[in-house]
Amino acid sequence: MTGRARPVISENRRWELLLLTILVVTVIFNVMQSTNYLGINNFINLFELSVEKIIVAVVMAFVIVCGEIDLSVASIMGVGACVVAVLHDSTSVPFTLAILIAVGVGGLAGLLQGWCSATLGVPSLVVTLAGLIGFRGLARILVEDRSIGDFPEWFDSLGQSGVIGPLPFSVIVFFVAILFGGVVLGRTGLGRRAYVIGDNAEMARYSGIDVVGYKIRLFAVSGAVAAFAGVLFAARLGSVRGDVASGFELDIITMVLLGGVSIFGGTGSMLGVFTSILIVLNLRNGLGLANVEANTQTGIIGVILIASVVLRNAFARFDTSSLDTQAPPHHEPAVTNHDLTTANP
């Protein structure tokens, strides 16, 4: 009976272990490659360079666990940054209020998308694809062809200089976010509901969960967090243009998927996402220090994304023996394939 226990849990574990191994290999590779790798500044840089993406990745993990997807995050990041910039540039709104307004606008953007998706039943892939185009347009409307800078010093320093020791504010935000996200996803009712909704939204509704409300709120949070990340990005860059953060969505989604969150919802863990973030960041950093072309880096991450699932499948097949023979067909590999190849519904 030993084999009978907990495929879900052990699969997550197994995935995390696999990621951890990849991470260790990456780190060893980096240490061997570059003498500059093991420096405190490099470690901070490594986070700082992508901190906005990985903050958004935390909330994206929730969205994907829920069986949805949000392609519009990068555009909403742009909106957040541009709102702050424009309010600073052409109004006398206090800067902190401007930040709050930007986050609010992001939240509203997410709310709108969540409403379209959850209430009207338009797949989130489609809604947020429209959002990807439309909100980028909004960002462009706001700043047009300008490059807006000259932010208050304290704001620039949020993204550029250390708050606690050498750690910049945004990196601290990330660690708080991932810790908080991990606890919420793994240890609270909110997280439990996310898994259940992602596994089977109808069933969740039949269990008294307000699925529509949950999803609308989740998209609103996703929008607000994205906008806030955009604001942090503005702080790091010190100036804002209409194209700020464009194209980030695929990187963000890649990190979450590599983290073992199933695109069909219902599985995954924040630990996995965290490990995958570390892998991607370290890999990019190490390859960058080894003067490997950005294109090649992207290609290598593509290979790792595919290879890691191949490995997982190889293990899963090796392990099917442990499944109860009477298990419902969704454990049968033959069927799993085609359920799991579904695009986000």
Partner: peptide, 29 residues
């Protein structure tokens, strides 16, 4: 399809409709 969440544990399924009851003051389950 409508009764149980198959990948979730027995515990998680049993407490699902009454999750609010298991919320501690800190918000954790």
């Amino acid at each position: 399809q409508l009764g149980l969440s198959m990948p979730q544990s027995i515990i998680a399924n049993i407490t699902l409709p009454s999750l609010a009851r298991y919320r501690s003051r800190s918000g954790l389950l």
